[in-house]
Design a binder for these strands. Sequence first.
DNA 1: TGCCCCCTGCAG
DNA 2: CTGCAGGGGGCA
Length: 288
Amino acid sequence: MPELPEVETVRRGLQRVLVGQRVSKTKVLLERALEGDPKWLKGREVQDIGRRGKALLIEMDQGLTALVHLRMTGQLIFLPKDGGPREGGGHPSDALVHKLPSKHTRVILSLESGDQLFFNDQRTFGSIKLLDEAHLALDSFLSKLGPEPWSPEFSVDALYCACQRRSRSSIKSILLDQEVVAGIGNIYADESLFLTKIHPATPAGQIAKKQIKPLIGKIREVLERGIEYGGVSARDYVNAEGLRGRMQEQLYVYGRDGMPCKVCGTVLEKTRTAGRGTHFCPKCQGSL
DNA sequence: TGCCCCCTGCAG
DNA sequence: CTGCAGGGGGCA
């Protein structure tokens, strides 16, 4: 799934329903989906749900944290005890998951209330790591992670430096580098480059310093919009209630190749940059 | 610092 | 059938 806005949407959903709940049982259906002893979870109370970049942090008492990486197809879905109509839920046609567990369910957390939390993951790239405070601080993924997009650390100077340091890399690969800034993935990289009229394959060294400030601005804007619209459900993504997001309708370029540009009407193109499918407007963003 | 790979499913 | 999919680790 899931880039920052999708993960943040899940975080907010879980925050509402999971905090204060105590784990009664953990069922692991795919061994490698959960790192650490599932017994550690028994009796733990969820205190907060955090996020760093695309990673979720389920913080529990006694200093235990479940670090969740959803990677490409991971889902965390909360199922209330009665399974009845979801509180604040959208239209039933928004539901992407109708029965739980599904064939892609990898881990099930049962809570003392009778509610359940399902970790689904079709491609099994995702994982849950159980970490105590010491191991959390040492975690190699978290410790290498760059600043959040809204952090003052993600500054014009910082991004410009990164562009100069890797001047021959494409600007898109700089944005996808989680050590430069945490949380941008393929969709929001393409969208923010469209909004700043920068071709994704532009060598980072050719980005002028005066382009950096608007780029940072558009990155923040499009991520905020993504959160506002509950994330992009292009394929598998659903929120903590199992419902689809609506941000896909707001996208300018991602997944719209062959369709007219919403700004100039030119047919959008798709190429490969930084090893990823890359969508852009040849007119608005020039062609290399 | 790019590229293959992990894995499963779906579209062409 | 081949190629491709919201990610990122490990390897030249």
